[in-house]
Structure formats: C-alpha cells, structure tokens
C-alpha cells in the first residue's frame, strides 16, 4: 500500500451558487481510525459526506476514496453511508430491506442476515419497520451500512435522538469495526459522546476546518486551562488559599487554573502540602469547551 489513507480530502471547496458550503478543507482518514466531524447545522458536515459519495462536485480541490474518484465503482464498494434521519418504508420488514440493500451491493441476501444479529435486532427481523423504535431503525441503518464489509463508513449524525443505552451499543459496534480495520467517519452535534469514542476530531465551522487532531491535541491547541479543585482537610480554606492561591469556592475548597503543561508541577506542589489537603478534583477541558473555543472563533459574527 503506497497510500495508507482510505479517505483523502485535499483543499476541497464546494459552492452552491454564491454560498460557500466548504472552503479549502483538507483531511485524511486511515484504516481503523474513528474520526469525528463536528460542527453546528450548516457547518458543512453533510456536504462533505455528499462530496465524498460523489453526489456533489467540488468547485476546487480533490477527494479520493481508496485512491479512486468519488462515485466510481471502486469508491462505492469502499464506502458505506448512513444518512441523517433515514426513514425506511414502514411496510417492509427489516430482513426485506437488508436483503434489498445486499442485492444492490452485489451481495447475497443470505450473507447479510447475520448483520441483524450484529446490531442486535435479529428478533425483529420479520417485523415491519413501522413497528420499530427509533433506536431499532438506526440499528437497521447501521446493519445496512455494514453489508459487504465496507472499508470506510460514513455516518451522518448516527446517534442523534438515541437513548444513552442505544447510543452506547451503537458505539460499541463501531469500536469493534474499527478494531477490525474499518475507518469510521461520523458527524455529530453531541460533543461529549464523541470524546471517548473517537481517535481524531475535526471541527467544521461555516465550511472551514477550524481544528483537527485528537482531543488532547485540540485541547493543547486551544490552550484551555486545567482546573484543579482542592478541598482543605480542616475546613480551613483560608490557610489553603494563602499557600496555593487561586479562588476560594466556599469554606472548604479552593479552585485554581493552570496551563495543561503546568499540571504536574501544580499537583506536586499541592501534594507537598500533606495533611492540609483532603481531596483533589481535576477538571480537564471537555470537548464541549474545546468545541466552543474553536467554533466560537470563526462563528463570532453569527447570532
């Protein structure tokens, strides 16, 4: 393999009339990687997906799927797609729909049926989709996307509207797939849920890629402070405050911010205080904070 990435987006710009939906976006996704695409509505996530699928032509720049052009036979065999809020015909059963998509993908219906087991709706295989819950429909959508073992999964807000348990199950399946080498690209509004579940995060804002990297990298780039909350042993926050500074929270606790790089130094200073300290809480910046930091920068003009 000369080119290790499955998805290569270079300097991609897409325009709808005068609206610039994407502006010079570049990113690459490797096999086995879980890649999250974040951004608010209209930031360009769906447009990026649709360009990768070949539905939309770039104004400039290039997209390659496993080295092939979007929409080409090779690209179509490589990619599987789950659109946002897909509504399957209610009158058909899960098994019928899965068989249909298997045939469109050149697979036998029989070979696809175990996927219903994989996503946990085998019991409902012969029930009409109209009777499915939102979570079950989404699982069916995922089963459909898994037909033929695609190398690249594009999931457009796959977990929006799912309850926490379904969402957890959903991510567990994605983790397993990534472990087997499938590259997973998913978009989301739901920042906190993506955090623990993806290797790399890209943030789109108004069609521009404003940040990209692992959560730690993003947090470092955003230079958001780590917050350390120290609880005094003897309800004597005053004494504690006098020795380490920061903000007094109440009678017992003191809170201080420090740069991510200084965290260890601060902690060892606190640890050196010995008995004065009862407990320490460390608040590292969450993805929500990082996301707000990055998307806030370039979306400043928006109300």
């Amino acid at each position: 393999m000369s080119d290790p990435s499955l998805l290569d987006v270079t300097g991609l710009s897409v325009a709808f009339g005068s609206l610039k939906a994407l502006h010079r976006v570049s990113l690459a996704v490797r096999p086995g990687e879980r890649f999250a695409l974040l951004g608010h509505n209209g930031a360009g996530k769906s447009t990026l997906f649709r360009t990768v699928l070949g539905f939309v032509s770039p104004a400039s720049g290039k997209v390659e799927v496993a080295g092939a052009a979007p929409g080409s036979d090779k690209a179509r065999r490589t990619v599987s797609y789950l659109p946002e809020s897909v509504a399957f015909p209610k009158a058909l059963t899960g098994a019928e729909l899965l068989a249909y998509f298997a045939r469109l993908k050149g697979q036998t219906p029989k070979s696809a049926m175990p996927l219903l087991e994989t996503v946990g709706i085998a019991d409902a295989a012969n029930r009409r989709v109209g009777t499915y819950s939102k979570g079950m429909r989404q699982r069916l959508g995922l089963a459909q996307a898994l037909i033929g073992r695609p190398e690249l999964l594009l999931l457009d807000e796959p977990t929006s509207g799912l309850d926490p348990i379904s969402r957890g199950d959903f991510y567990a399946i994605l983790d397993r797939l990534a472990g087997e080498g499938t590259a997973v690209v998913l978009s989301s509004h739901s920042l906190t849920e993506v955090e623990a579940r993806t290797d790399r995060i890209a943030i789109l804002s108004r069609g521009r890629l404003v940040a990209e990297g692992s959560l730690a990298e993003l947090a470092r780039a955003a230079a958001l402070p780590v917050t350390v909350r120290v609880k005094a042993a003897a309800e004597d926050a005053g004494a504690l405050h006098a020795r380490i500074g920061g903000r007094r929270l109440n009678g017992r606790s003191v809170e201080l911010d420090c740069a991510a790089g200084d965290k260890m130094a601060v902690l060892s200073r606190i640890a050196a205080l010995g008995d004065v300290v009862a407990d320490i809480d460390i608040d590292t910046p969450r993805l929500d904070d990082v996301y707000r930091h990055f998307s806030g920068h370039s979306a400043g003009g928006e109300a």
Partner: peptide, 8 residues
C-alpha cells in the same frame, strides 16, 4: 442517498 451510495 442511501440507495445511490451503493454501486447501483
């Protein structure tokens, strides 16, 4: 989009 993303 789901249908047209397949090789059809």
């Amino acid at each position: 989009p789901l249908v047209l993303a397949t090789p059809v």
